[in-house]
Structures are given as C-alpha cells and as structure tokens.
C-alpha cells in the first residue's frame, strides 16, 4: 500500500511543465519524450483506470455516482501500488456528495499546488479551449465550472469540478494536507530554486547538477520545438500548440482594459493574497 502526491493546479498553470521536469529528472536530466511520460504521466481522472479498478462501466454511471466512487478508486489503486503515486489533478479539493474528501486524506502524502496569474491563465485557457477571451474569463468566474463534460459525447476523462479560479486556489490552499505552493512566475524567474523545492517536497534524491540539467531539458523553447517536430498527445484536436508562449505578463498585450478589470474584480481577494495585485 502506497500513498499519493497530488500535482494540482487550475488548467494552464504549469502542471505539465512540472511533470515533464520530473520525467526528465527520472532519466537523469535527459530530454523527456513528451509523448511517453512514464514517471509523471499519471492523471487522477482517467476514465479507463476508473473502469479497470472498479470493474464498472463509467458510461452507465451519473456524474454524481462517478464522483462518489472516486475515493474508492484511489483506495484500490493505492492498495496495489508499490511506489508513491504521482497524479496530475485539475479538480478542486472538495468533498464528494457523500461528504468525504474526493482525494482521501489518509492516502495523501502531500500536494504541490501550482498557481499562475489569472490574467495570463485567461489568455492561455482561451487558446487551449478554442474559446474567446470573454468566454474563458466567464468560465474562470463560474463557481460551477466543470472539465471534461459534454452534452454531445462521453469524454476520455471523468468529469472534474474546477469551480472558479479563486475557488480552485482556495480549495487547495485550505485543504488539510501537506502542501507546497509553486508560482508559475517564480518557476520562470528562478527555475532551479523552485523546481528544486518540488524535488525536495517529493522526497526525490537529486543533486543540483541533475536538477539544473532537468530544468534545461524542459526549457520552454525545447518543449515547443519538440511539439512542433513530433506533436504532443495532450494538445487538444484543432489547437495550434500546447506550449504556446510560456511567459509571465503576456496578458498585457492580449487583454482589453475591461477584461483586465473583470478578472481583477472577480478574483481580487485571492490575487491580492498571492501578490498578483
């Protein structure tokens, strides 16, 4: 029986960057195969895994029944595991309709929460979802927002409750679990320090040279050219590129003053607490 590290974030906040860094680190700092992450490729809401572990057809379950069953899925997976489990998460940290944590506390070793300036998230999210900026901003303010929900077909991932951007941040920062908060902007400005903090938090044994090599291996330009050359399995169909700009403050060129005001109003308290305002 083993327990989980959750790599949690609102979408487009650096989660995949961190996972690719960890993947590189598991290969002594070599360039990772972005389409075959073995060490850190796991995701907490994979439909196939849910079905395999619970031996039930997820398509026959309602969203509520799926959410109720997810803690059981983690229990079964943890029982069978022989190494700590690393899982990417986009769900908010919440209780299921049965009143228990979606991510069982007793199975949690810790959570790394990645956060990014919501003005940059809005620009990146709009691109990723092929939506307008206003739609992305609206989504980020919606306390009922979901991921992987469709009224037309059954998506590959299980439905995930995002809540609003602020709600998401608060849910994870208030969760009663050990936690490391990583800001995207810090990961950009001093990658070795902040990726290094993640390495220590996860209890991975790696010296500074190895960390530096892995940081180098997942430098934004390298990921972008890898995607260009080979494609990236996590890029949604029809989207130009998953690794798009990888900068902080790009919103200044993309958002109208009204859009900036809307985001800063919607998320004032949380933005202030994270020094984004």
């Amino acid at each position: 029986m083993k327990r989980y590290f959750w790599l949690a974030s609102y979408p487009k906040s650096g989660n995949t960057w961190l996972r690719l860094f960890l993947e590189s680190l598991s290969h002594e700092g070599a360039t990772p195969d972005i389409n075959a992450m073995a060490f850190s490729g796991g995701h907490a809401a994979v439909r196939d895994e849910f079905e395999r572990l619970l031996d039930i057809e997820s398509n026959d379950l309602t969203d509520e029944e799926i959410t109720r069953a997810r803690p059981r899925m983690y229990e079964l997976e943890a029982q069978a595991a022989n190494a700590p489990l690393l899982r990417k998460v986009h769900d908010a940290w919440e209780l299921t309709p049965a009143g228990e944590p979606l991510f069982p506390i007793e199975l949690t070793l810790g959570a790394i929460y990645l956060v990014r300036d919501p003005r940059d998230v809005a620009v990146s999210l709009a691109h990723h979802m092929r939506q307008s900026l206003d739609q992305a901003i609206e989504r980020m303010s919606n306390p009922q927002a979901m991921m992987s929900m469709s009224k037309r077909f059954i998506p590959k991932q299980l439905p995930q409750r995002l809540t609003s951007w602020s709600g998401h941040v608060e849910s994870w920062l208030e969760a009663p679990v050990g936690r490391l908060l990583l800001k995207y902007e810090d990961m950009l400005s001093d990658p070795e320090a902040h990726f290094g903090a993640a390495v220590r938090f996860l209890g991975i044994d790696a010296d500074r040279d190895k960390i530096a090599a892995a940081v180098e291996a997942v430098a934004f330009e390298r990921l972008r050219s890898e995607e260009k050359a080979r494609g990236f399995v996590e890029t949604p169909p029809g989207v130009e590129g998953f690794f798009r700009r990888g900068i902080a403050g790009g919103w200044r060129e993309s958002l109208t003053p009204a859009q900036v005001t809307r985001i800063e109003t919607d998320h004032a308290a949380v933005m202030r607490s994270l020094n984004y305002l």
Partner: peptide, 27 residues
C-alpha cells in the same frame, strides 16, 4: 446500440422518442 447525440446526428438517425442510457446523459 448505445449512441451519443453527435453520432445520431452524423448518421442522420432520428433521436425523437429515444431513451437515455441514464436520465440526462448524452447517450
């Protein structure tokens, strides 16, 4: 067959009167 709405439309199959796999589901 169990089919979702997008497939019914694509294959020009009618969806009037069909029963959902579970209430409210797109299948």
């Amino acid at each position: 067959r169990k089919l979702s709405l997008d497939v019914l439309d694509r294959l020009a199959l009618p969806h009037q009167g069909l029963i959902a796999n579970r209430p409210g589901q797109p299948k």
